[in-house]
Design a binder for these strands. Structure first.
Lengths: 203, 203
DNA sequence: CAGGTTGTGGTGCGATCGAACCATAACATC
DNA sequence: GATGTTATGGTTCGATCGCACCACAACCTG
């Protein structure tokens, strides 16, 4: 029954199978046969939609990235009409933490790809921009906060932004490994934010 | 020419081959044949010294851990006779950063193993204690620092210790991915330490 | 309704995988 | 110096790998 399939949905279905396998056994377990079985399609279909295995890994990562950005925007939009800088920065940092199954599995997939980012230029290009962009975003928000009196003036916005992002990323690892609970990570972020902001979460 | 080989050295030689391959292509590339070739021994020897592939991965990780602890102790010992809390905490945090090739490749190996820690209990047991221990160590040092006037009294030692460790781990990732220089990471750690300590590095 | 494109399944091939097996040389012990 | 253990190399087996190839059904275009 060809021709009626939704290309994008098909690709997503396959990509999700890649993610699930990657979160379990790492990229090692992402074989064409296993992906096909996990996605419930024939192995031939993977070739049709993605081509070689490397292209499959790349494609699945791209879809994951698009997903991440969209979900992040949705969550930030739910903060309400005119959220304070505090709430926005908090929301941005929370995107780095595995606070729900979606974010947890997403960060696990990134972890599975990690070493590949160093040797595979095609993969690296896809995943290398986000962290820096996030850091700059937070730094910009902190500067805005300083101008509007929501952030203490005697802090170095760029340095604090970078360390907040780094701290969130570090806790991402420990939460993924279940060495720390998501709640603890949230509490620690809030503790650090309280040091930088003059306002509270909801302000 | 049997019987004259040093068992431990042999195991280390093989383990180092595992590390090199893992830092390049991830665990995916750590096949018995490739490890044998990289270590310059026959495939049969891997079986003799480690057994199955899973046991090889486990063994290589254990050796890496032992190595890490020993090197860390050596570096901390080089701080001198009676180093201040500031210098000690700084040194401990620096063990988390890829400041030289040894630490860089070590953390890359951990990254390659990462997803496995979640599904393989044997591996998890080997690598799960270190982070918490480090956090407690730093927290203890900060408390000592408070008692001796080297650390500000109005900070939460446990919370700051945890966030310092998390921040170092987060920067570990970005330095590994070459998104940040090792020097920048050091500067950012120092910036945070300056906020907590009343003393300077050398004090 | 004919012809070409698109979507799908199945199958096969050469390479490589992990692991078991077999042989044997060097040493330790008596 | 005979014997058993330790250390090493080489080879082979069944399974699985990525991927190319083949067949064909369904749809679009004319």
């Amino acid at each position: 029954m060809p021709r009626q399939a939704d290309h994008d949905q098909r690709r997503r279905q396959i990509a999700e199978a890649v993610w699930r396998l990657a979160t379990r056994g790492g990229l090692e377990d992402v074989t064409l046969r296993q992906v096909a079985a996990e996605a419930g399609v024939s192995a031939r279909l993977l070739q049709y939609y993605f081509g070689t295995r490397d292209e499959l890994l790349l494609g699945a990562l791209e879809i994951l990235n698009d997903d991440a950005e969209q979900r992040a925007r949705e969550r930030l939009a739910k903060l309400g009409e005119a959220p304070g800088m505090h709430a926005i920065v908090r929301g941005v940092l929370f995107e780095l933490l595995p606070l729900d199954e979606e974010r947890r599995s997403r960060h696990l997939v990134y972890a599975a790809y990690f070493v590949r980012f160093l040797t595979d230029p095609a993969l690296a290009k896809v995943a290398q921009d986000a962290p820096r962009a996030l850091e700059n975003l937070v730094a910009g928000l902190l500067v805005q906060g300083q101008e509007s009196g929501q952030v203490l003036l005697n802090i170095n916005a760029a340095a604090e932004a970078a360390f907040l992002v780094a701290g969130a990323e570090g806790m991402q690892s420990s939460v993924l490994l279940r060495q720390r609970s998501a709640e603890d990570a949230v509490a620690m972020i809030d503790h650090q934010l309280a040091r930088v902001f003059t306002t509270t979460n909801s302000a």
